[in-house]
């Protein structure tokens, strides 16, 4: 059990501080971010407005009427107050969410070429993509877009030379060493392996997303019939 990584507190806005655990892509830093987010939410300070976890930093938005220096002092105390071992990421409750994915065919136009490039059969690529134990490192770029840790490094794939003008909503894709899901139809250059029938973002729902930052994610391969049965129509 290791101590909490050191954390700097920087101004983000007049009503927000940024807690920075580092400046690199590192699952341990990200685990610290989610642990701190959980700790802050549990503390329930009356000035707290929003907590925004990212890869290696955490945005903490507070009531603009409160003196930022007071919030800073309380955050500093919380950061310093972590006992080694008592605050590791393993103590943070995490949900595991299963994302059904129809791989290949119209759902995954890049499955065949991606498999060929990786010198795998399409079935083996699907199997290895499903075998991953993923974590939602952060949600951003677009509403509900999850950045997932945990892609098997052997499955890393370069982005398309020419991005597609339209990637279908729900597309599950690999871009570089990351895998993610497009919540709505948009342009995109990631390699699309399949599509989930779930609506990842629906503003008419509360909460509007299927996934929350820090969630564990497993992909489960389904067939076209199952996909049609599970289909959720996102509103946007």
């Amino acid at each position: 059990m290791s101590a909490f990584p050191t954390c700097d507190i920087e101004p983000l806005a007049d009503d927000a501080w940024l807690l920075r655990f580092g400046d690199r892509l590192d699952p341990q830093l990200n685990a610290a971010v989610h642990a701190m987010a959980w700790r802050l939410r549990s503390a329930g300070a009356p000035w707290l407005r929003e907590i925004v976890p990212a890869f290696a930093s955490l945005g903490v938005f507070f009531d603009p009427e409160i003196d930022p220096a007071r919030v800073h002092a309380q955050l500093q105390a919380m950061v310093e107050g972590f006992e080694p071992g008592a605050s590791t990421a393993s103590s943070v409750p995490a949900r595991t969410v299963e994302i059904p994915v129809a791989y290949g065919g119209d759902f995954g136009p890049d499955l065949e070429s991606a498999a060929a490039e990786l010198q795998l059969s399409p079935q083996a690529l699907v199997q290895r993509h499903c075998a991953g134990d993923y974590t939602v490192a952060m949600i951003g770029f677009a509403p509900g877009f999850p950045y997932l840790w945990g892609l098997d490094p052997a499955l890393a794939l370069p982005r398309l030379a020419t991005p597609r003008a339209r990637v279908a909503a729900g597309s599950v894709a690999i871009g570089g060493a990351q895998t993610g899901i497009y919540p709505r139809e948009s342009p995109g250059g990631w390699r699309v392996l399949g599509r989930t029938p779930l609506a990842l973002f629906d503003p008419e729902r509360e909460p509007p997303t299927t996934l929350q930052p820090g969630d564990r994610v497993r992909f489960v391969a389904i067939d076209a019939d199952e996909s049609a049965r599970l289909h959720e129509a996102p509103r946007t």
């Binding site: 806005a13 007049d14 940024l18 400046d23 925004v52 890869f55 290696a56 930093s57 945005g59 950045y147």
Partner: peptide, 11 residues
């Protein structure tokens, strides 16, 4: 560019 981190109106 660095690692993506939170931004806000005013950044």
């Amino acid at each position: 560019d660095g690692v993506s981190e939170p931004v806000a109106p005013g950044t």
